[in-house]
Structures are given as structure tokens and as C-alpha cells.
């Protein structure tokens, strides 16, 4: 049977299962309905459900929020440093002692990399590095979109975070988090992603270096993603 038949039939089965008397069997539209026909569905569902529960508090801010995030990241075996923007280049250089080649998003503020002796390969969607190159570099340095203190989660999305492959293939990730981008709980990070228009951009939410507990439930850090995650919290 034709693919179109499968679509129409599945939709008709759903309508029938829901006892939609207004849409008897077989009447599901044959073509994808345009935005006018379907764009209201998600909002209608949201209206039916009502607002999500508000953050119940406590509402740490300032240093308390930074402390909470730091605590969570350390718990995941990431390293954390809290620095002013001026201190960042020296710290990155220190973390990259001995590194020969690193990769960074083309749109990352070059000031962060000022202290480096390693060669910096810029990467962007327009001029992407190939996988073999990414597999051979010593590290990657990126910015971040937001961080959730409660869960120790860093959201990577948008040009300063780079293409997804660059924070995945290298074995060492140095990630900058502006303290102004730290939020308390998950829904606030989702709001930031929406406010900055990044919803439809690829996103990676990172909570510590990759890990597995598949063998006798023993936690082993580092399977396929970067095995070392260094987080630099940047104030101001």
C-alpha cells in the first residue's frame, strides 16, 4: 500500500480510537494540513493543561547559585574554576599545557585564547573541519548558552558553542559559562533557550563527562564523549 495510505490510515485509526464523531473513519486529510490547520494544536493542548508548576524555591542567587552549580559539577568529576574575564586566558593556557592543536568555534571571543601556544583551528558551519581533524586535536574550547545549578547541566547551542561535532569528538572540552547565564532549575534554562531563539538550533545538554554504569552498576567516567570536562565560570 502507498505511504499516503499509511498516513491517512494511522490518523483515521487515532480519530476512531478517540471516538471523534466529527471525523469518521477514513476522513483524515490526505495532505499534510498547512500551518493554519495544525499550528494551533500545541497551544490548544497547553491551554488545556494550564501553566507548569512554578519553581518552588529555595531561590539561591549570586554566590549561592554559583556554589550550587560548582558543587554539582564537581560531583560529576568535572573541574571548575571561578574567574574574571581577564583571568580566563591564563587559565585556559594552563589547562592546555602540552597541547599542540585545539579547535574552537569561529565565533568564540578570540580574547579567551590569547595566552595559547597551541595552534587554534577555527570551525564553523560554513567552514567545518573534517572528522579526522577533530579526532586528532588535543582539545576544544567553547562558550555555553546557559547552566542549571540544580542539576549541573550546561546547555550548548548557537555559534559560540560551535557545531555539535566539535564538542563531541575531541577528548577534552574546556567550557566557559558566564555566571549571568546560571539559572536555578531546568525550566528557567528552557526559557533562556526560547528567549534567545535557539529552540530549533541543535542543542546538547551536558551534565558532566560521559559516563556509564552498565557493568555491574559501577560508574565509569568517559565512554564516547570527551573524558575530561573543565568548566570555567566567568564573572562580570
Amino acid at each position: 500500500m502507498s505511504p499516503q495510505t499509511a498516513r491517512a490510515e494511522v490518523l483515521a485509526r487515532i480519530r476512531s480510537a478517540l471516538r471523534r464523531d466529527d471525523a469518521p473513519a477514513g476522513s483524515a486529510s490526505a495532505e499534510p494540513s498547512g500551518p493554519a490547520g495544525t499550528s494551533a494544536a500545541a497551544s490548544a493542548a497547553a491551554a488545556q493543561v494550564g501553566p507548569a508548576p512554578a519553581d518552588p524555591g529555595p531561590h539561591p542567587d549570586g554566590d549561592a547559585l554559583i556554589e550550587l552549580l560548582t558543587d554539582r559539577l564537581l560531583d560529576y568529576d568535572a573541574s571548575v574554576s571561578l574567574l574574571t574575564a581577564a583571568e580566563v586566558p591564563a587559565r585556559i593556557a594552563e589547562l592546555l599545557t602540552g597541547a599542540r592543536t585545539i579547535v574552537a568555534p569561529h565565533d568564540l571571543d578570540p580574547a579567551h585564547l590569547a595566552g595559547l601556544t597551541a595552534e587554534v583551528l577555527p570551525d564553523s558551519a560554513d567552514a567545518p573541519l573534517d572528522l579526522a581533524t577533530l579526532d586528532s586535536v588535543d582539545a576544544v574550547v567553547t562558550a555555553s548558552t546557559a547552566a542549571v545549578a540544580d542539576t549541573g547541566t550546561i546547555v550548548l547551542s548557537g555559534p559560540q558553542c560551535g557545531r555539535r561535532a566539535i564538542t563531541l569528538v575531541p577528548d577534552h572540552h574546556i567550557c566557559l559559562v558566564r555566571t549571568a547565564d546560571i539559572v536555578n532549575r531546568v525550566p528557567a534554562a528552557v526559557e533562556i533557550i526560547e528567549e534567545r531563539g535557539l529552540v530549533e538550533h541543535p542543542q546538547t545538554w551536558v551534565s558532566g563527562p560521559s559516563a556509564t554504569s552498565d557493568i555491574e552498576l559501577e560508574r565509569v567516567a568517559g565512554v564516547h564523549g570527551p573524558r575530561t570536562l573543565d568548566v570555567i565560570l566567568v564573572t562580570g
Partner: peptide, 14 residues
Amino acid sequence: PYTSFWTGVTPGDG
């Protein structure tokens, strides 16, 4: 540790 989100095709990424 990791959650990925993607929406259709992003030119140059993925």
C-alpha cells in the same frame, strides 16, 4: 550526562 535535540536539518551541522 547528555541530551541531544535536533530539528530537521541544520546546514553544516549534523
